[in-house]
């Protein structure tokens, strides 16, 4: 389906239709909530097409950090590899078609999936005081 790259794009993760299926593709087990993972996202999206999202962790043995939007057709938005050379803290902007829970997930080297989540509201807008 896609041309070959030096870094093979993980089809199984990006084409997964649910959060757990996408996690499996990176070797993550059943997800557990963790206060050592942080998600930065607005409460209400200013524009559903451009929603700022940040993922960070204070955990030591993390392999990947993921940003996911549960109700998107394909929940996985981005995967960042954690290395010695960068802070485990990444920001991007995602698309959202509707209000949804958003996840920041850390996949550890021993196959754990630890997450933080919050609801981001996508509204039709209008009105005001």
């Amino acid at each position: 389906l896609f041309p070959q790259h030096a870094h093979a794009w993980t089809n199984a993760a990006f084409e997964a239709k649910t959060v757990p299926d996408a996690l499996k593709a990176y070797g993550g087990g059943a997800p557990t909530e963790s206060k050592d993972v942080t998600l930065t996202a607005p409460d209400i999206a200013e524009n559903g097409a451009v929603v700022p999202m940040g993922v960070a962790t204070t955990l030591a043995n993390v392999k990947h950090l993921l940003v996911m939007v549960e109700k998107n057709p394909f929940p996985l938005v981005a995967k960042f590899d954690v290395s010695e050379s960068v802070d485990p803290n990444f920001l991007t902007r995602a698309k959202m078609g509707q209000s949804s829970d958003v996840y920041a997930v850390a996949i550890t080297r021993d196959g754990k999936a630890l997450y933080a989540k919050k609801e981001v509201k996508v509204t039709l807008g209008g009105c005001g005081g």
């Binding site: 794009w9 993760a13 981005a78 995967k79 960042f80 991007t92 995602a94 698309k95």
Partner: peptide, 8 residues
């Protein structure tokens, strides 16, 4: 990093 079409 790997990105999908969900990135804005």
């Amino acid at each position: 990093a790997e990105w999908g079409p969900g990135v804005a």
